[in-house]
Simulated assay, not measured.
Amino acid sequence: MKPGDRLPTEKQLSEMFGVSRTPVREALSVLEASGLTVSKQGGGSIVQATSLTNLMEQTQFEFVDTEEVLNLLETRIILESEAARLAAERGTAEDKAVIKEKLDEIRSSQNNNLVGDKEDIAFHNAIVQAAHNPILLHSVENIATLYEKAIRFSLKKNMGISEKRAQVLSEHERIYTAIRLGNGEQARDEMYKHLNNARKKFKHSFDQALNS
């Protein structure tokens, strides 16, 4: 169904699925709470467009427009590439030790065959923290929840594919090395490559999931 379409009535849905009206009402309530439908005067529900600006935690990520997610990741590329440069140039020894710790956690998650989305996010957050720019940090935090959903979705697609997981780890290692050496330009370039690759892989994975 497309945005603007009217859902069948409770009675029709009850008959379609062979259930009482109680679970139908519950399901309709979940859809409305998730921002996927809106109730209309006189009864009935209308499908509404789902965007990143009104996405709620309960909403299935697959409902979001692919282009919006790609725009989100593009924004992250812009912010984090510069964050990596600043982390290399401004980061303290303690900052870089934290980044190394988060890198080791990514490696450990792969060794234990875990998705590793939390570890991946922690690594990137440590780099943003090391940039020592409160406005940059706030900007990244504002899109954190949606970004985390995108990372989780993408990394799950790498499960069981050792080559892809090894590539992601290698990209993280190159970012850390550039930051550790204080090479801002290299850190920026490595972060750009890493996130741009993630954006491309996400689009491919998203398209596959929607067409499966």
Rank of each mutant, 00 (worst) to 15 (best):
Q60P: 00
S51T: 15
A33F: 11
F153I: 13
R90D: 01
N196Y: 12
E67A: 11
V115N: 14
M191T: 13
Q110H: 13
S205F: 13
I143S: 07
A166M: 07
F153M: 05
V19G: 03
N196Q: 10
I143V: 13
N158D: 10
K102T: 15
L114Y: 04
E119H: 13
A83H: 04
E26S: 12
M1H: 07
A87H: 01
I127V: 15
K164Y: 00
D120F: 14
N71G: 15
K11M: 03
Y147C: 01
E82N: 08
L137D: 02
E148C: 06
Q129S: 11
R21N: 05
L55K: 08
N111K: 15
P8A: 12
N71A: 11
E74A: 13
D104M: 10
A178T: 05
V98L: 12
E173K: 12
L70Y: 03
V140Y: 02
N183Q: 14
A33H: 08
M191Y: 01
T50I: 08
K96Y: 03
N113M: 05
F202Q: 06
A126I: 09
L79W: 05
I99Y: 04
R25D: 03
G18I: 11
P3I: 11
E62Y: 06
P134R: 11
K193F: 09
H204P: 00
L169M: 04
N113C: 04
E89I: 10
R21V: 07
P134G: 05
I77T: 12
G116S: 11
G4D: 10
E190Q: 13
L195Q: 14
K11G: 03
E68R: 08
E173T: 12
M16P: 00
G4S: 07
E82H: 12
G44A: 11
N183M: 05
D120C: 07
R21I: 07
L13T: 05
L73K: 14
T53N: 06
G18K: 11
R199N: 08
E101T: 06
V69H: 08
F63I: 12
L114P: 00
T9W: 02
M56F: 04
G44D: 02
E80W: 02
V168Q: 13
I46F: 01
R90W: 03
R180D: 15
G18D: 08
Q129Y: 06
G43L: 07
D120A: 14
R76Y: 14
D104H: 08
Y147D: 02
G160Y: 05
M191N: 02
D117K: 00
P8Q: 11
M16V: 09
L55T: 08
R25G: 03
E190I: 05
L31A: 12
K100Q: 14
N158L: 13
E148R: 10
L13H: 02
A93V: 10
I78E: 15
S14L: 03
S14T: 09
T92Y: 06
L79H: 05
E171F: 06
Q41D: 09
G182K: 06
